[in-house]
């Protein structure tokens, strides 16, 4: 067993996830491969979206993978950081917008 919950070397083992359930693993990777192909959005654009989502879901493996991938695909440092700010804004906004619910409740019970 690893001494840490996250080990960067585990990212390279992701492809082995089908070891315990091959059919679902194969289907997932086939789907994953299709998603990231050039289509209505380019693979380059999808890489930046993936980076933002990786930060939103706070997956260290995904952050490693898509920081490299997006940088390789020619996004600049400032563009990468702006994508992370989009994730942060949405996460922050997601908390803050619930403030409306809080206000609704308080207004309902307050004199």
């Amino acid at each position: 067993m690893s001494e840490h919950y996250y080990d960067e070397k585990d990212l390279a083992k992701f492809g082995n996830i089908g070891e315990f359930q091959k059919e679902l693993g194969d289907r997932f990777f086939a789907y994953y491969g299709e998603v990231f192909k050039d289509s209505e959005l380019s693979a380059r654009e999808k890489s930046l979206i993936a980076l933002a989502v990786a930060h939103a879901v706070q997956c260290p493996y995904c952050i490693d993978a898509y920081s490299t991938d997006a940088y390789e695909k020619g996004w600049s440092e400032a563009q990468l950081m702006e994508a992370v700010h989009v994730a942060a804004a949405i996460r922050g906004g997601a908390s803050l917008v619930h403030g409306v619910q809080m206000m609704n409740k308080v207004k309902k019970i307050a004199m």
Binding site: D38, S42, A43, R44, T68, Y71, E72, K73, G74
Partner: peptide, 9 residues
Amino acid sequence: FLPSGQIAL
């Protein structure tokens, strides 16, 4: 890091 796709770049 490695280079990305030539056409897209």
